[in-house]
């Protein structure tokens, strides 16, 4: 396989006595979906937060395209191509869908200190936004306030914001949570297309979706990696079945 795009090396993070991340290492290769599964409280979101820079790790390092990004801020990592969606949707409720996505387009153009030209008539912003919204089937919601969207639509807007950054690697924290079967099916389709453009590190609880999508899987239990391998390996891994999948797959 080619060089990994994203590498996490021996990451550790403790909150007092609680070891939330325990010696975690994982790689994300171009063209793949790497799923991160594990029971609640296994430290999946804590791990993602360290990768995105919202939370500093105690030790270990994170490399994006071979470059050490462990010491960079959230914004700097995003500029280097790390896109993410949040478990709890993190959009500006008071603004329209268009405005939420537009800020990401503006960010990759690197032009937030322009004081004069109105964004409302700026085709270099509006056109990319329209393209992304079209792709996610949100075109008719462009002018709607995020506060008025359904849960599933908010998830899609999150995705739109992440995609607008044209990321090199995408971290998705439970993109299908609470979406219903139709929404989930749609998201599965989107992600399976998307992985050829940008590799995805996916946290997801829906095991059907995970095994449908993932090329490789890491199982996280109480902060540490219990098992790592291809989807088939994990599905048949005895310790994983016992610790986590047991009740669901039998």
């Amino acid at each position: 396989m080619s060089e990994p795009l994203l590498q996490v090396k021996q990451l550790n993070k403790a909150f007092g006595a609680l070891q939330a991340t325990r010696d975690v290492s994982l790689d994300l290769y171009p063209g793949e979906i790497h799923a991160l599964i594990g029971p609640n409280g296994a430290g999946k979101s804590t791990l993602i937060s360290q990768i995105t820079g919202n939370l500093p790790p105690d030790s270990g390092e994170i490399l994006l395209q071979g470059e050490d990004i462990t010491g960079l801020t959230v914004a700097e990592r995003a500029q280097r191509g790390l896109g993410r969606s949040f478990q709890i949707s993190s959009l500006a409720d008071e603004l329209s869908v268009r405005r939420n996505v537009m800020i990401a387009v503006q960010a990759i153009q690197g032009s937030s200190f322009r004081f004069w030209k109105p964004v409302s008539s700026d085709a270099s912003l509006l056109e990319p936004v329209a393209t992304i919204l079209e792709r996610l089937g949100l075109s008719d919601r462009a002018g709607t306030l995020v506060a008025e969207l359904s849960h599933g639509e908010r998830r899609l807007v999150e995705m739109a914001c992440a995609l607008a950054l044209q990321p090199r690697a995408l971290l998705l924290d439970e993109p299908m949570a609470g979406m219903g079967s139709e929404g989930t099916a749609r998201m599965v389709k989107l992600l399976s297309e998307l992985k050829h453009e940008v590799p995805i590190l996916l946290i997801e609880h829906d095991m059907d979706a995970v095994f449908q999508l993932a090329d490789r899987v890491s199982v996280l239990v109480s902060g540490g990696v219990l098992a790592q391998g291809t989807a088939d390996e994990i599905r048949n891994h005895p310790a994983v079945r016992e610790a986590y999948l047991g009740e669901e797959t039998t």
Binding site: R84, F86, A92, D93, Q106, F115, V119, L165
Partner: peptide, 27 residues
């Protein structure tokens, strides 16, 4: 003019949701 510009869009987001702005790569 300022609030209608890209700077204004960034400022609005910095106010409403600084995490979203940082996630987009704007400090």
């Amino acid at each position: 003019r300022l609030m209608g510009s890209r700077f204004g869009a960034a400022l609005t987001m910095a106010h409403l949701n600084p995490v979203r702005l940082a996630t987009a790569g704007i400090d």
